[in-house]
Nucleic acid binder design. Structure first.
Lengths: 161, 161
DNA sequence: TATTGTTATACTCTATAACTATA
DNA sequence: TATAGTTATAGAGTATAACAATA
């Protein structure tokens, strides 16, 4: 593993993300939210997706998984789903007053979390970090080397037991 | 959120980690493993922890969670648990032949994954990435700012080295 | 009583497959 | 038949609380 130069970056990356995510989870939970809720609200506010599939894709989850979250959010009075009169298959997702309020709280928590993360880092360092992280993502999404799957479409017969 | 300078790094970090982790998961699954299994095997091989608590802490999970994984791994014939004659409370975890074999396969997959990740990145850039990621982790583990958790518990668990 | 680990239970996030309803 | 979304089900990973065994 430490073959080329140093510990596996994948390991460092996932451990860092795990630690940081837990703190973020706690911060969002402290004001009554969660990461999926935050991402859904953020996407609704910032991107105004035309339908749920688009929303799911933007959040990075499957449609059924999104439904799962939307059910909970609707039960909590954060959103409403109305059918589009023009195309009644489409459910238009809208934030309620409570949803807007929670969005603000979560946004504040997210921003505070981000400020904390940025402590002691110069803007150029942040930019470098972005660039390097994007590079990792590109490395892994483009051209599968051998064993992996590119976008999850192919199912390599696993040698699971 | 894009208040200070650019998109939240926490978001970029978690999205990158998610994408990269999924590819890594697939790579490990393709040879019959998983991330927790890999971390357990790797820790056993590299650190020879004295007991399960130490192992759990090194992997970054709770003791009960570790038991969960060890049960599955023992059922799969990857490890054995024997009581330490000197202190019969302690279960000594040892890799079986199959465990050693799987370790090698997972190590190869992990290394291949890591090489893929490093593509197009100079050693200095990798080093910079490590430094920046560690900084993020430190920022988040040291001195909690204010937003506590609802149950009032303290948040400084991992200490993942 | 303290320590080590297990069992029982449950939660969150995720996914796939089958289904309903529209078009 | 194709598209949008839901329901049903499942599985992985994690956690807490209560417990047993040992010291």
């Amino acid at each position: 593993m430490a073959d080329s130069f140093g510990p596996p970056i994948g390991l460092v990356l996932s451990q860092t993300a795990k630690t940081v995510s837990r703190v973020f989870d706690d911060a969002l939970a402290a004001v009554g939210g969660s990461v999926p809720i935050w991402l859904v609200l953020l996407t609704l506010k910032s991107r105004r997706p035309a339908n749920q599939r688009e929303l799911a894709r933007a959040v990075g989850i499957q449609g059924a998984t999104l439904t799962h979250h939307l059910n909970a959010m609707e039960a909590d009075g954060l959103i409403t789903r109305r059918r589009d009169p023009a195309n009644r298959r489409i459910h238009q997702v809208t934030l309620t007053e409570r949803g807007e309020e929670l969005f603000l709280k979560l946004a504040a928590a997210a921003q505070s979390h981000d400020q904390r993360l940025r402590q002691g880092l110069a803007p150029e360092e942040i930019a470098t970090l972005h660039r390097l992280l994007n590079r990792l993502q590109d490395n892994v999404t483009a051209e599968p080397p051998d064993t992996g799957r590119p976008d999850g479409s192919l199912q390599c017969p696993p040698e699971n037991e």
